[in-house]
Nucleic acid binder design. Structure first.
Length: 104
DNA sequence: CTTATGACCCTGA
DNA sequence: GTCAGGGCCATAA
């Protein structure tokens, strides 16, 4: 098992631990997984994430608090719908940082 | 080996 | 508060 796969597994593990109704940023997720600075790597993982992995990928947003998909894309609408289904609503196309997992 | 790409982040104006 | 520029890291060609 390489260090890269270890990071991959660690990130997926932390992702699975994100509770419903809460969101987390890419950088914070990587940091919680013990791999700070690999925020962009998280995005690469989620992109290659299999559809049947049942992981809460929709709870991951960027540091600006908004969805990282284009505003009018199907992916954006899907993620927004999944978040609203868990009680997380967007305000002015953004998610309040109060909804983040760590949030102090 | 170098170059390009991406579901990103931080800092300064 | 917003906007732009540079930096980071892993992969693909």
């Amino acid at each position: 098992m390489t260090e890269i796969n270890d990071a991959w597994q660690a990130i997926l593990n932390v992702l699975a631990l994100v509770p419903p109704g809460c969101v987390c940023t890419y950088g914070k997720l990587a940091e919680l997984a013990g791999h700070p600075g690999k925020a962009r790597y998280v995005g690469y993982i989620l992109k290659n994430l299999p559809e049947d992995s049942a992981l809460p990928w929709h709870r991951i947003i960027n540091a600006q608090g908004c969805i990282s998909f284009p505003p009018h894309s199907e992916k954006h609408a899907l993620q927004r719908d999944l978040l609203e289904n868990e009680g997380v609503f967007l305000v002015r196309d953004r998610i309040p940082l109060r909804t983040t997992l760590w949030q102090g």
